[in-house]
């Protein structure tokens, strides 16, 4: 049996520290999701309107955020903007800002996609029954759009949780940073700690994201 370095998890408060790190990652992603979802819905609806200026602006925003690696966005906000504008924000706040910018952009695209995927005939058939514009939206369009949207946006949540592993680069002590600290501190006593610690990080991410993916899959099946 090779030494997997698992014993290090049970030294001191190491396991609790790892869980604390996971909570930091989850806290940042859930807060960003909570802000991104309503903003994304708003921008997504605006994108389906026929205002060319607004459309072009939102399109630029979406593409800009997509092209930029998240790491670069984190660096710009945390190192760049604080220096250039002289404000003081924590790494956690910078992370929430970046993840919200990203989540809003992705969410708006999902909302736009869900709305335009509903055939024009559905609007017409509702209108032919004498429904007003707001009744058509309320009873026919929004329920269908939401059914298409929920599985996709749940997947976005898991992507955001996974991507929080980048924020250790701006000094936020999340689960991966805690792992590095534990491995460093036990380098002499448990030289194989890397395997055990990263394995547990893997499992922690897995058990955070898996139920969410499962839920998305189930809803997709239910509404397909």
């Amino acid at each position: 049996m090779p030494d997997l370095g698992l014993e290090v998890l049970f030294k001191g408060k190491n396991l609790a520290r790892l869980l604390g790190g996971l909570w930091t990652a989850l806290r940042i992603s859930l807060l960003s999701v909570a802000i991104s979802l309503p903003l994304g819905v708003l921008l997504g609806v605006l994108m389906t309107r026929n205002n060319r200026f607004v459309k072009a602006l939102l399109q630029f925003y979406l593409n800009f955020i997509r092209i930029m690696p998240q790491m670069v966005l984190l660096f710009i906000v945390y190192f760049g903007s604080t220096r250039a504008f002289g404000w003081d924000i924590s790494g956690e706040a910078a992370s929430v800002i970046v993840f919200t910018l990203w989540g809003t952009a992705e969410m708006s695209d999902l909302v736009r996609g869900a709305l335009i995927s509903i055939p024009r005939h559905q609007y017409e058939s509702a209108e032919a029954l004498g429904m007003s514009k707001s009744q058509t939206s309320l009873y026919i369009i929004i329920p269908q759009a939401v059914r298409r949207l929920i599985p996709l946006s749940i997947n976005l949540v898991t992507r955001m949780i996974k991507t929080t592993s980048l924020i250790l680069m701006i000094g936020v002590v999340e689960v991966l940073k805690v792992s590095q600290q534990i491995i460093e501190a036990n380098r002499m006593s448990s030289p194989n700690a890397a395997f055990g610690v990263y394995l547990s990080v893997f499992l922690l991410y897995f058990f955070a994201c898996w139920p969410i993916s499962l839920l998305a899959g189930r809803l997709e099946k239910k509404w397909s």
């Binding site: 005939h121 559905q122 058939s125 509702a126 032919a128 026919i140 269908q144």
Partner: peptide, 8 residues
């Protein structure tokens, strides 16, 4: 309509 257009 030709394509029924029931609400799915």
């Amino acid at each position: 309509f030709q394509s029924y257009e029931l609400f799915p």
